[in-house]
C-alpha cells in the first residue's frame, strides 16, 4: 500500500492540531485561508470574549509516525524571512495522519526581558512533544507577553 496522499496528511494534521490546541478552555480557533502564512489563529479568551490576544499556528504535517519533525537551516532561514513583519507570537505544531502525538516549537517566541515584552525568532529549532503541561505553559507565556504589552501601552 502506498504512502498517504498530501491532502490526507494535511487535513488530518490540521484536525489534530485543532483538537489538541483547543483541549483546554479559554482558547478560540479560526482556520485561515491558504497563503496567509499561518494555518490557524488562536485567540486566548478566558471568558469567550474577543481579546485580541492572538497566537498564529503553522501546521506541519508529518508523513511518518516514526519521525520526530526536523527543520533544515534553509527552511529556518525561509521561515524567518516569511515572518519578518509579523507582530504577534507564532508557533509550529506537527502531526502525522495516523498518530495522536503532536510536536511543538516556537517560530516567533514571546518573552519578557526586565519586564519588557520581546518578540524574537526562536533560538531553538527543535520540537518538543505536546502535553497538557506544555499547552498550559504556552497560554501562560502568551498571556504574560500581552499583559506586559498592555502595561507598556498604559
Amino acid at each position: 500500500m502506498g504512502s498517504p496522499q498530501p491532502w490526507y496528511v494535511e487535513m488530518r494534521a490540521e484536525a489534530q492540531a485543532i483538537l489538541h490546541l483547543t483541549s483546554r478552555d479559554g482558547v478560540q480557533v479560526a482556520r485561515l485561508p491558504k497563503g496567509t502564512g499561518v494555518d490557524l489563529l488562536l485567540t486566548l479568551a478566558a471568558d469567550g470574549e474577543l481579546s485580541g490576544r492572538h497566537l498564529g499556528v503553522v501546521v506541519k504535517p508529518r508523513t511518518s509516525v516514526a519521525d520526530v519533525p526536523r527543520l533544515t537551516p534553509r527552511s529556518v532561514r525561509r521561515e524567518r524571512a516569511q515572518f519578518e513583519a509579523t507582530t504577534f507570537p507564532v508557533c509550529m505544531v506537527s502531526f502525522s495522519s495516523s498518530d495522536e502525538r503532536g510536536y511543538f516549537r516556537w517560530i516567533l517566541e514571546p518573552s519578557l526581558e526586565n519586564g519588557e515584552p520581546v518578540l524574537g525568532y526562536a533560538q531553538r529549532t527543535n520540537f518538543e512533544p505536546i502535553t497538557p503541561a506544555l499547552l498550559d505553559q504556552l497560554v501562560s507565556r502568551v498571556n504574560a507577553w500581552y499583559d506586559a504589552r498592555l502595561g507598556e501601552a498604559a
Partner: peptide
C-alpha cells in the same frame, strides 16, 4: 475536526 478524523480513518493500510 473530530468528524474529519473519524470519517477518514484509514481502512486498508493507510488509505
Amino acid at each position: 475536526s473530530r468528524f474529519l478524523m473519524l470519517i477518514t480513518e484509514p481502512h486498508d493500510g493507510e488509505q
